[in-house]
Amino acid sequence: MKQPSKTGKGIKSDETLFALIETLRELDGAGVTELADRLGVAKSTVHGHLTSMREHGFVVKRGAEYHLGLGFFDYGQYVRGELNIFRSGMEAVDELERATGEMVWLITHENGRAMYIYGRGGQNDIDINTILGKRSYMHCNSGGKAILAHLPERRINKIVDEHGLPSQTENTITSRDALFDELEQIREQGYALNLSEDLRGIHAIGVPLTFEGEIQGALSIAGPAHRLSQERCEGEVFDQLQAATDEIELNLAYR
């Protein structure tokens, strides 16, 4: 049974609503009875929430099942459009994709997780729409590590305390000491690597995006390990990322 509240500190009806939204996403649609069983709440409660969300465009009903509606897309587009890093970085991402032929991502951070806010697929048979908007653990993501390296130590510790250092592959950093050692190295060299730490066979390099001394996000390039070797990452690709970073940070300064 999925628990409506993770902390017990929120308003119960709101916690139930958010649990309902998350469950609808996980199940890719469901009926009232299934949702009530999953959440351990009354069917009348579930039906009431669904009715309100349907009236406001946040769910749609198809047959006997409810699905998330496009109302969420409207708000998501608004939130992303408010990010200066998004408006300042799109053109640079497009240019990097053309120059490298690899997948390029603009990444920000919120509540201790990295999030992909804009990207281009390059010469990869990957639907970037399945990744766009996804949250990722920061300790095994090149952009996430580039961001972490420029956060205060107390904040990094808080993120690790809250989210842990779960292993995604055999190459994932799972030790706090090892993470802090790597973050120090990232600060010195100016880039972060992900050598099959998140997904086997995928390499990535990320660089921080800062403005007025504050970390805003990261820019990263990813691709298959046989094509995006560590040597290529630390050579020509890093040079291209640095040039793009200068362009983005200049755009940030004049927005």
Rank of each mutant, 00 (worst) to 15 (best):
S142F: 01
I126E: 12
I221N: 05
H150P: 00
D14I: 12
F86N: 07
K158T: 13
T23E: 14
K61G: 02
S229A: 03
R62M: 05
A253T: 11
R120L: 03
G81W: 01
A204D: 02
A99P: 00
G133C: 00
Y66A: 05
I147Y: 07
Y191V: 09
N194S: 15
P208K: 06
M103V: 09
L219A: 09
L199T: 12
K158L: 14
K145W: 07
E26G: 05
E212A: 13
F86Y: 14
Y191Q: 02
I205Q: 03
S88A: 15
L179E: 08
R227L: 12
M1E: 04
W105E: 10
G48F: 01
R25F: 11
Y75K: 14
R98E: 15
P152S: 06
T45I: 11
M138W: 04
E55F: 08
M115Y: 08
P152R: 03
K158W: 08
G8N: 08
T100Y: 09
A19C: 08
L35V: 04
G63D: 07
L199M: 14
H49S: 06
Y118A: 07
L39T: 06
K43E: 15
E236F: 01
V237D: 03
E182S: 05
G122A: 07
E26P: 00
A30W: 02
A218T: 02
G71S: 09
L209C: 05
L179K: 02
A218G: 10
P166V: 10
L106T: 07
I248E: 03
G144W: 03
D94C: 05
R135I: 03
A92N: 01
L241D: 10
V32E: 15
E184R: 12
T23I: 10
F18K: 01
P166Q: 06
D74W: 11
D239V: 10
S136M: 15
Q185N: 08
G29L: 07
G8P: 11
L219T: 10
L148R: 01
P4M: 00
Y78N: 04
L250T: 13
S13I: 13
S229R: 12
C233T: 03
H67W: 04
E184A: 14
I107E: 10
R98S: 13
V160D: 02
K134Y: 03
A146T: 03
G206C: 05
T45M: 04
